[in-house]
Design a protein around this nucleic acid. Structure first.
Lengths: 226, 226
DNA sequence: ACAAGGGTGATACCGAGTCTCACATGTTCG
DNA sequence: CGAACATGTGAGACTCGGTATCACCCTTGT
């Protein structure tokens, strides 16, 4: 067992027993049977021991996003986000202890927010390469990245609270809901200006005209003779 | 001049001169001509001196949101968000120094994220009371709150970088774009059918007809931004 | 005049995080 | 085989952020 694992185990046990603030690094290293110096070589700070796999998950997200493209954006986002969820599910009890701690200790709450911001940054940067070019491309990339993380967290929190029976399914549903939001961006300019089809004059019968319009709006190729 | 103001002034000056980490609280209080104890009575931490008006703005946001309702949701969100923007615009040079610091000092970056999370929480809680009831009401409230903060930050950052000529106008535009996203929530599922205006036949001249249509469309309910 | 209370200074203390030096394990190569 | 080197570790001193306590104003009201 690596001294890293011993430290994580000792830290979580002590945090659970006496709380985060009441537990000194001194006490952790004593229980783990290593020196104080080793602690700070392994973790940059006392807070970091709470999120021992963060860097690793970050790497996995980057790898998954790197294989994506504009065409497969939705899938890439969903799967990359699910990687984070899977990490928590795998941690099991550890994740629950961390949840209790992050809810009660401000410093850890902040730290978790920073972790989420790290994820969000990866999503945002991948999205910037995928968004259709336009004046709002950057804003849309940020909004979408933020929405992905928010939706993921909502599902994760439900699982951590024990409210969720099938977090994976809920996660994918939530992602679908988020991706649906991007529909409004595809429409021509002005958020409040709905697409307009104005037929000023036509010799076609109404029903034929409407059928052709519907077909055109559905994305079908135009009838050859017009 | 209150010792609070003296401390803020001294702190920002020293941070600008020698950087954040290199500046000790000792140096700040020496320059401000007060004691170390006074510093920590005024600010809970060294980081907090960077965001001296945070609590105040938070209070203003709460007050503005408290006057909102489900019907005026868009306006309340937009104006509450604009309160934050106004605070930064008013700070002027101070805001720019802080921007340089938060970009380079990790601890301050985290701190700023925590501030934004505070704002977001206020938005989320207000929204929870306004969202139309439904299974996804909570998720929608979170997504919308997150989107508001994200959009605000995008505009703010443009101003801080000097890229923006009229940040207030950009802010309101961005908010309108965000609010437009909520449209997809109201629709029954399935691909979005954009609103259609079909004029099958008309005896009016084209230009008159178009003018009337534009007038009619301009009178449509828009996400409030004025 | 005196009591009460808010803002302040001085000092001691705790604990996180850094730094430096020493040592104990391996390895790799001559 | 032994020297050189890398890696992980322990020990202790040190800096600095943050807390707690006590004493000292200086106001304000009765």
């Amino acid at each position: 067992m690596s001294s890293r694992d011993r430290l994580v185990e000792a830290a979580f046990a002590l945090f659970e027993e006496q709380g985060y603030d009441a537990t000194t690094v001194e006490a952790i290293v004593e229980r783990a049977g290593v020196s104080r110096a080793t602690f700070f070589r392994t973790f940059r700070s006392k807070e970091e021991v709470i999120f021992p796999r963060h860097e690793e998950v970050l790497g996995r997200i980057e790898a998954r996003l790197a294989t994506g493209s504009a065409a497969t954006m939705g899938l890439a986002l969903t799967e990359a986000s699910r990687l984070v969820l899977e990490q928590y599910l795998e941690e099991g009890e550890l994740a629950h202890i961390r949840y209790r701690l992050t809810r009660t200790v401000p410093a850890l709450r902040d730290r978790e927010r920073a972790s989420m911001a790290d994820y969000q940054r990866r999503f945002r940067e991948a999205l910037r390469g995928w968004m259709p070019p336009g004046a709002d491309a950057d804003l849309h990339a940020e909004l979408l990245a933020g929405a992905v993380v928010t939706a993921h967290n909502a599902v994760l929190r439900r699982w951590l609270r024990g409210t969720s029976a099938d977090p994976r399914a809920e996660h994918d549903d939530a992602m679908a809901a988020v991706l649906a939001m991007t529909r409004v961006w595809g429409e021509p300019d002005g958020p409040a200006a709905p697409a307009r089809v104005v037929v000023l004059r036509s010799d076609l019968p109404d029903d034929v005209l409407l059928a052709r319009l519907d077909a055109a709006l559905a994305g079908e190729p135009r009838p050859p003779s017009e």
